[in-house]
Write a protein that binds this DNA or RNA. Sequence first.
RNA 1: GGCGGGGUAGCCAAGUGGUAAGGCACGGCUCUGCAAAAGCUGCAUCGUCGGUUCGAUUCCGACCCUCGCCUCCA
Length: 486
Amino acid sequence: MGASRLQLFNTLTRRVEPFEPLFPDARDAAGRPAIGMYCCGPTVYDFGHIGNFRTFVFADLVRRYLEFRGFAVNHVMNITDVEDKIIRRVRESGKTLREFTGHYEAEFLRDLDALGCLRPHHLPRATEFMPQIIALIQKLEQRGLAYRAADGSVYFSIEKYRGCGCRYGQLVNLNFDAMRVGERVANDEYDKESLADFALWKARVPDDGDVFWDSPWGQGRPGWHIECSAMSMAILGASFDLHLGGEDLAFPHHEDEIAQSEGAGVQTPGRPFVKHWLHGAHLLVEGKKMSKSLGNFFTVRDLFAKGYTGREIRTLLLSAHFRETFNFTLAGLDGARAQLARIDECLGKLRDLATQAPSPGSVGQAPSPELVAAFTTAMDEDLNVSKAWGVVFDWVRDTNRALAEGQFTPAHSAIALAEWTRLDAVFGLGAKATDEAPAEIVALAHERVAAKQAKDFARADAIRNELKAQGWLVEDTAKGPKLKRA
RNA sequence: GGCGGGGUAGCCAAGUGGUAAGGCACGGCUCUGCAAAAGCUGCAUCGUCGGUUCGAUUCCGACCCUCGCCUCCA
């Protein structure tokens, strides 16, 4: 495979650096280097929107590319199924917590599938890791980093954490004097010692209703950050390779995760909680921040309702580099559709040819073996998908030309398709849904062929228009008419 | 106010100290009874102003605009 190595930007070092497994000797059953990857998943209180899914498609791309590069990835994505907004909606809906979150969790996974994302190997729910969460808080308590406040909640002390030589502010440059920490939060809302401290365990309040768990600190529920620390370490170990999420999570969520996880002192000395942090940029919609009042707030199902498919959405989301703010537009989706059509046309021709018997004496010209190598070189550069698409379209053009000039044999087509398949294991576009034309449409197409043979072109064109009115395009090919959805 | 991203053709988006990938849209041509698909082809001096340099879109400075984080937002 190319001479290049995979390089990824690491938020921790603010540099693009080579990706090296944290445990070089770890191998899966097939002998592939094993790595652990955790991605902050959804809070299941509503349908996911297109911005959420940019991050999840990004995580899927990372996982797929690492697999393409020969790694055995253990992919974990948490489901946050207890949280303020959830509790409020549970209260309003009259459902149980599990009924409520179960619904949105199922819908989330449906959307994830529709966007061509591979299911993470583990989808831990916060509510199912209470023992681990409590144990982690206890560990922090034992180490003097956690304290109980008058309201019964348990908080993490950033001052104590820094006091024992740990660094708070690894992912972002923090200047506590200049930061407006907590400025927009009512200062008397919490009994924290310091505004930057964050809740590990929140004492039960009347509005919580039935949503609470017993703990050494009384009834309550976990703070937001602690679940990710507890679940990631429970499944992947105290130190693992990759942790990803949206850029907004870098601070405070990920910073707090580091503080809790490293503060608990469970790592082998010298080893970090996470070696490599990746953050996906947000997107704008129609040039503006997504908001309900602007009418540019799209859930994935809103886009389905407008007739767009999951692979079209995926294609658009994968068209820009993950660290760049991306402008998501409906016009962009139309562009993605046209782009896919171009690829699908080319692949369709290759498939047609690959299944044909070789014509005797045909030698032709083998497809250039450059596709996978060039793709790899592009993706190795911090997942430069834009460059990778450039590689793909150069290949499409070259392939189309070779096909048009009759240079490919069926065997060549099969080779080209195999190359594409390798590459598509990363892009995850899959095959276009085939739409079989109904019998009456096929009959019309046959009728048109008869009209053409009789040189009755007026009739042939009338049928073309009739087909078009019914939503079908007809293309005359060497092998007869081909029907396509308009 | 602090910190961090961006500003490249109508739109989306790569990239490099030596005059700018790719996709969409648009125009021309070839092919086609017509079309579609496909191929060929046309279409940008890279936010503004300075500086460094033989040469900058790419390096430095200033400015303008824009986005994000600083709040349990992907």
